[in-house]
Simulated scan of single mutants.
Amino acid sequence: MAGARQELRAEPATADREIVISRVIDAPRELVFEAFTEVRHLSRWWGPEGFTTTTRSFEFREGGEWDFVLHGPDGTDYSEWIRWLRIVPPERIALLHGESRDDPNAFESVLTFAPDGAATRIVMRTVFPTKELRDEAVEKYHAIEGGRQTLSSLAAYVTDLARKRAEG
């Protein structure tokens, strides 16, 4: 086929191990970023619908850790641990997330915070060590829906916070 053009789109090498969730939040980027960086905010919105969070320790700095428990609506407790790998205020946070410091199945997430007019577009890109771990997270733990619910909780919390600050 002379003259035919074929478009090739390269997929990232991690595509089969990734989950990408995004949301536009009606609040300034600095406020959305702040809600991710201060434990007094995180404990108010973190987790899927019906979950609550208890923080054991929190140090937001590169190399710092957040050790916490997610309490499920059915009474199940989930030990969680995050190490902050890279922090670029108010644009980006890279983290390692697992059940504990030595979790061999820990996964990496990168959150980006981009202005979208007066709002903020947050993108959460998570890469699992293997395709099997990604599939298990999706099928057994409902990671995509849980991620959407978590960003929805963040949006509601930050939108309310922005309104209260504007009223002043």
Rank of each mutant, 00 (worst) to 15 (best):
E7N: 09
F128W: 13
L96A: 14
R56G: 15
E11I: 06
E65I: 08
F113L: 10
M124Y: 08
G63P: 14
E139Y: 01
V24E: 15
V110M: 09
A15W: 00
S79Y: 15
A2P: 14
R121N: 10
A156V: 07
E49S: 09
L95G: 08
T52F: 04
W81C: 05
S79T: 12
D102K: 04
D26P: 05
A10S: 07
E80Q: 12
L133P: 00
A10E: 11
I87Q: 12
S22A: 10
Y157I: 06
T76M: 08
E7R: 06
I87N: 07
T37S: 15
W46N: 15
A156D: 12
G3E: 06
P90K: 08
R165D: 03
W84S: 04
L154H: 06
V39H: 05
E145Q: 10
E65F: 05
S153W: 11
A119P: 11
A35W: 07
K131V: 01
I82F: 03
A106T: 03
S152E: 15
E11P: 15
T130Y: 02
E139W: 00
L161M: 04
L161E: 02
W66P: 04
I93H: 09
T150A: 03
L70E: 10
Q149M: 14
R101L: 15
I93W: 04
F68M: 12
A114C: 04
R101C: 13
I82D: 01
V127G: 14
P12A: 08
L85P: 00
D77W: 07
L96K: 12
A13D: 02
T76V: 15
I19R: 03
V127L: 04
E30W: 12
H142C: 00
E99Q: 09
A27N: 04
G168Q: 07
F113G: 10
V69M: 11
R23N: 07
W45N: 03
I93L: 00
R165K: 08
A94S: 13
T120R: 03
F33N: 06
F113S: 13
F58S: 07
G50E: 03
E132L: 02
G98A: 09
R44N: 06
V39I: 15
F58P: 11
